[in-house]
């Protein structure tokens, strides 16, 4: 159900955040972005990113070393 998917697998801090920001800036409010990351640090970081920027973290699922975040753009 995501409007866009960003695969940030293999990338390390701060790249998943920077790429998420770039992807979100191309989208419009209410659209949903799915971010896939293999960086364990991105679990806390995506949460912090959403806290600070107001974007909504809908879900955050770990699946065998992959972290999948669903973010709704404000």
């Amino acid at each position: 159900m995501a409007d866009q998917t960003l695969d940030a697998s293999g990338l390390n801090c701060p790249l998943p955040i920077l790429k998420t920001k770039k992807e979100l800036s191309k989208m419009s409010a209410g659209q949903v972005l799915e971010v896939i990351s293999t960086d364990a640090g991105s679990v806390k970081d995506i949460e912090a990113f959403c806290n600070q920027t107001g974007n909504k973290l809908i879900s955050n699922v770990e699946d065998g070393g992959k972290y999948v975040f669903t973010i709704e753009k404000v």
């Binding site: 801090c13 701060p14 955040i17 920077l18 998420t20 920001k21 912090a48 990113f49 600070q52 920027t53």
Partner: peptide, 11 residues
């Protein structure tokens, strides 16, 4: 550069 780019990403 890491802190600066992340800072901008965080508005």
């Amino acid at each position: 550069f890491i802190i600066a780019s992340t800072g901008v990403a965080m508005d």
